[in-house]
């Protein structure tokens, strides 16, 4: 049976880390210097073993393991990245229609000296935060807030950076009543029509319509272990084989990794993650993402407003693989 969660999959690593932490405590309390030396060498040995284990594990991540890593709780989320890469950020809340959706955050920011508008899906880490952020599943008001922010960026000639990290858009009765489909469709159309540079980056889970709703970029980036899928692998397995537990097979079939997206020509670049994944060294991951975002914004800064719109049109217009009969 494949692991079901990131915690389960990284179990051996977490155990080893725990063990090392305990040894450290013991070493700190140890008065006898010879004994302390022995403990310290033990720690060094375990640490080397841990590093090697992480190295091997993360150099051969399969599609399902990537799904687990992309969903990992300690993985940096949108606000973590914003905090790390922007020198200023003023969050603006509310869609001016109905309410404020905490599952999508955004506002004007300064990124490496450039004024921009940055937005993205926001997940929560503990139970309260997860509930408050609705597990990163945005409601119509979230997409309408995004539309409002993007239109504002357009008015003031500011580039838009969107960070994608959602399992899906919210499927509940409330969202349906307030037009979740229309909100996503309108957000996609708005983004297509912007006359400012747009860069989208999948930082974790790129979950279907909920993700593409704010994912229309002149450039699209994906973090090395992020995933992007039309349907969650468990859902796909439930439809295909009526066995949601075969998510690992469905993940492989869906070709949802950054590497596959690159091969299919659906993204522009893969953002390398630190060894052992973005959650092992969030600062390094943020630096890496920042570098790639800056590169994209520099490349796009040479295009006129009309060229930016046309480039986006052509990019999405050409997506798809088909044949002709005869």
């Amino acid at each position: 049976m494949p692991a079901k969660t990131w915690k389960e999959w990284e179990g051996p690593v977490l155990e080893l880390q725990d063990g090392i932490a305990k040894l450290r405590q013991m070493a700190a309390k140890e008065a006898d210097s010879a004994k302390r030396k022995a403990l310290e060498s033990k720690i060094a040995e375990y640490e080397a073993r841990l590093a090697k284990y992480i190295d091997t594990q993360y150099s051969q991540l399969g599609p399902w393991e990537k799904v687990l890593v992309a969903r990992a709780e300690p993985r940096p989320y949108t606000l973590d990245f914003i905090q790390a890469i922007c020198s200023e950020f003023i969050e603006l809340e509310g869609d001016r229609r109905y309410g404020n959706d905490p599952a999508i955050v955004g506002g004007p920011a300064v990124f490496r000296g450039r004024p921009i508008v940055i937005l993205g899906h926001q997940k929560g880490r503990n139970i309260q935060q997860r509930q408050y952020r609705n597990f990163g599943m945005a409601k119509p008001e979230g997409y309408r807030k995004a539309i409002r922010l993007m239109q504002m960026a357009d008015r003031f000639g500011l580039p838009v950076v969107a960070l994608l990290d959602t399992p899906a858009a919210d499927p509940g009765v409330d969202s349906e009543s307030r037009g979740i489909s229309e909100a996503i469709a309108d957000s996609i159309l708005t983004m297509l029509g912007l006359r400012v540079p747009t860069v989208a980056a999948v930082i974790g889970e790129g979950g279907s319509g909920g993700a593409i709703g704010i994912g229309v970029g002149n450039h699209v980036l994906m973090l090395e272990h992020a995933v992007y899928s039309v349907i969650p692998p468990e859902g796909c397995a439930a439809i295909l084989w009526r066995q949601p537990e075969r998510g690992d097979e469905a993940a492989a079939a869906l070709r949802l990794t950054a590497q596959s997206a690159m091969e299919l020509g659906l993204i522009d670049r893969i953002v390398p993650e630190p060894k052992g994944g973005a959650h092992r060294a969030p600062d390094v991951a943020a630096l890496s993402l920042g570098d790639e975002l800056e590169r994209s914004l520099k490349e796009l800064s040479g295009l006129t407003p009309e060229e930016l719109r046309e480039q986006r049109y052509r990019k999405y217009r050409s997506m798809g693989v088909f044949g002709t009969a005869g």
């Binding site: 992007y228 899928s229 039309v230 070709r255 299919l264 659906l266 049109y313 999405y316």
Partner: peptide, 16 residues
């Protein structure tokens, strides 16, 4: 579903 991410990209494509 059978076309994975390619089919997801038909959302922006048709909107274009």
């Amino acid at each position: 579903m059978q076309e994975g991410m390619l089919s997801l990209m038909q959302l922006p494509k048709t909107n274009a």
